[in-house]
């Protein structure tokens, strides 16, 4: 079986079967990262360009490690060191990269839709590593992989996503993916950070953290995306933390075996208390480990062949 599309632009485009295929392939790749020799020859001779035009530690490192563990050659481009500072447009950059015959392009961009533009003009597979407030499909896939590994299933679970829903591409991709896989998703956040008509995505909407996390199997906390906020949406970080910080007290409302997730980077004491981030419910670092395997799976499934 293979994916039906050339690119991975968003979770919205994926069927349940395709999500399961990616997750199962990723589960098989987990083992490679536990070996002494962390490399398999699967993508020998392939070139993967990581075009990261927005800040990133986790995702860029994760994609680079994923490529290298599959024996692909990986090249990283960041905005500050590229010709974009000289005024080159994204399309011209893409055409020049294409002329060097890479086998896959991973792109992160602050503009929603940038990966779609590349996918249209380039023959190579494009993997969206986060575009504006639109989608971050590999994050949602690694989240689903983590949930499946810990809970054995996704279907039927009660999942709360809390924070800056409006500006979060992680929330959007996860809502598409988790609802498609049969989970019951609740979103919560300040009214100023809650997109209009979000309920049409098939989620329950709450205004209060406590209401959203009651009896939850999974709590996903989100960072406030100040870089994407155009105006002041909340009075102060302290007030935000007062209402929307997951801490040792309010977490008791959730199920006893609740899992706490966060896509990172975390702001300790703002959306998540340190004792929760480092505590027994937290699977934040499992998410990072699984991220490498998910990206290996996608590079394998999307590159190569005739």
């Amino acid at each position: 079986m293979k994916l039906s599309k050339k690119d991975l632009l968003g979770i919205r485009d994926l069927t349940v079967d395709e999500i399961n295929l990616i997750l199962e392939t990723a589960e098989s790749f987990i083992e490679v990262s536990t070996r002494d020799i962390k490399k398999v020859p699967t993508l020998r001779g392939k070139t993967v360009i990581n075009l990261f035009l927005e800040a990133s530690t986790r995702t860029r490192t994760s994609f680079e490690i994923a490529g290298k563990r599959l024996s692909a050659d990986t090249i990283n481009i960041s905005s500050t060191t590229s010709s974009i500072v000289k005024g080159e447009t994204l399309i011209d950059t893409a055409k020049n990269l294409e002329a060097m015959n890479p086998d896959a392009i991973v792109i992160r961009h602050s503009a929603a839709g940038a990966p779609q533009i590349l996918a249209r003009i380039m023959k190579q597979p494009i993997i969206n590593a986060g575009d504006g407030a639109h989608e971050h499909p590999t994050q949602a896939l690694l989240d689903m992989m983590t949930i499946k590994a810990k809970k054995g299933k996704i279907s039927g679970l009660k999942i709360a996503i809390v924070g800056d829903i409006a500006h979060s591409r992680v929330a959007r991709s996860n809502i598409y993916g988790l609802t498609r896989m049969g989970a019951h998703v609740t979103v919560a956040g300040p009214a100023t950070m809650m997109p209009r008509y979000i309920d049409r995505m098939g989620v329950r909407v709450c205004c209060r953290l406590e209401e959203a996390i009651r009896d939850a199997d999974i709590i996903m906390m989100l960072r406030i995306q100040t870089e994407r906020q155009q105006e002041n949406l909340f009075p102060s970080l302290r007030e935000y933390a007062n209402y929307f910080c997951l801490n040792g007290e309010n977490i008791k409302l959730a199920k006893d075996d609740v899992l706490v997730m966060h896509p990172g980077p975390i702001n300790r004491g703002v959306e998540i208390a340190p004792e929760i981030a480092d505590g027994p419910y937290s699977v934040i670092l499992d998410q990072v480990t699984n991220g490498v395997a998910v990206r290996m799976a996608l590079l394998y499934l999307l590159t190569g062949g005739k």
Binding site: M1, K2, V32, D36, T42, Y300, G304, G305
Partner: peptide, 27 residues
């Protein structure tokens, strides 16, 4: 042992053989 990651025909076909789990929990 699942040998799919080591196959020599991965790049010559458009098929993506399913990768199974390898489990060799010892040196």
């Amino acid at each position: 042992l699942d040998i799919t990651m080591y196959r020599d025909d991965l790049l010559s076909t458009n098929r993506k053989p399913k990768i199974g789990k390898t489990d060799i929990p010892f040196s």
